[in-house]
Design a protein around this nucleic acid. Structure first.
Lengths: 226, 226
DNA sequence: TCACAGGTGTGATCTGCGTCACGCTTGTAG
DNA sequence: CTACAAGCGTGACGCAGATCACACCTGTGA
């Protein structure tokens, strides 16, 4: 069991630099916990002292307005981790994290994490790379929200997702509602735009699976309209 | 001259952990360069191999759409640094950086920077904290763009800026145009909203200086309208 | 002291998209 | 097989805010 856990950990970039012994130590320090679909794993503004690694399932990172509207900052899948920020800067959680499916999580406490980071600079380096990646994405997202119209943002999202999967298709199953919350639009507008994309052959939708029909065309949509 | 430079560096969080010797070494490694107002310090998509520290002046970090519209991701002042991302992950520059005033910059090359980071873990830690801070800000900005209307975003920006200055006033001189580009709105809409704020006593504008007249009121504006 | 550039104030229009209000489809639990 | 919950498609309507088009104001360099 512990062996399995440390194998899993070793597949995660921020733990790559660790040798067998260290991985084993980590394996002993983590707790494992299940969260049913819909449960809140952590609350925005709470003080945080744990790092989470998603072992199975799917979670969303969201901001929620007082009126209840949700903005999805990210959807994470197996192997992803979250909650590091609070460990790094001792600030409260910056967003809610909610299980979109039944999920299994590994939990690591701040002190254990910090000790390991200090002891192994390559972990710090990997973390820096991960934060850089997220920062770039966040800035791109800001640019998209300001410069692109809704179809443009959808096109960009689809291109991103297909790139992520390495194939001209999107693996994640996303409802229109979810897409809408990811790009800051209403479900109805997303429905209409997706219909448009289908009709013009830019994408193919079959049985809850989306594939890119015409990358060129989509990319054009993802440009600023002049 | 070098002594001055290392004194200046020591005032910057990511260099705090360094002792006199190390600071002196850094002081020798940096080049200093002047950029006139309006000049582009670095271009998005260029490969990057330098870290910049702003010694005097003011710069903006911007994304530019093909139609020429600018989105301002941030305005930096003396003591701020930028360009680390490309040093960390070897990716191209994520945005343009343009001098808003005549500015003096210290430039540090990738290899010099990396060596120092590796040699001194506290630098890595400070960097992690800085990136965390930026990531939180970026996520907040995304939330604001989706959840708030234009007056709300302006109110939030003003509150942020006054917090930054530590006083109920804003030191930075910002044109309506600049504010508009920071919050993703048009100059005209910003003008009208600011007028509104003045008329209702939320802010006081006197001679290119803005101060908060009624924090409570502004904060209310910065909430999601139900 | 003129003139010119950069910034602001304000009206008039136009439009993308949010919101409301449905009805239809599909998966799944009883 | 039935019914109920989730998700999707589509029309109608209204409005926040972009855009266009000026007039005005203030600093500063010739």
């Amino acid at each position: 069991m512990i062996a399995q856990t440390s194998d899993f950990l070793s597949s995660i970039p921020i733990f790559h630099g660790l040798d067998r012994d260290e991985l084993a130590k980590f394996g002993e320090l983590v707790r494992e916990r299940a969260y049913p679909k819909g449960s809140v794993i952590l609350f925005q503004d709470d003080p945080g002292d744990s790092l989470f690694v998603l072992r199975s399932g799917r979670v969303k990172v969201v901001l929620i307005g007082e009126d209840g509207r949700e903005v999805i900052l990210g959807v994470l899948e197996s192997g992803a981790h979250f909650g590091e920020l609070a460990l790094i800067d001792d600030q409260p959680r910056s967003a809610h994290v909610i299980a979109m499916e039944d999920s299994q999580l590994l939990i690591l406490r701040r002190e254990d994490f910090r000790r390991r980071v200090d002891a192994n600079p390559s972990v710090a380096w990997a973390l820096l790379q991960e934060l850089s990646r997220r920062l770039r994405r966040a800035d791109e997202k800001i640019g998209g929200l300001v410069l692109l119209d809704v179809p443009g943002r959808i096109a960009r999202l689809l291109l991103d997702l297909s790139q992520e999967s390495g194939r001209p298709a999107i693996d994640k199953v996303l409802t229109h509602q979810t897409i809408a919350q990811m790009i800051g639009a209403s479900r109805e507008t997303v429905s209409r735009a997706m219909k448009e994309f289908q009709d013009s052959g830019l994408i193919l939708v079959e049985r809850r699976r989306i594939s890119i029909g015409n990358r060129e065309g989509l990319e054009k949509r993802a440009q600023v309209r002049v």
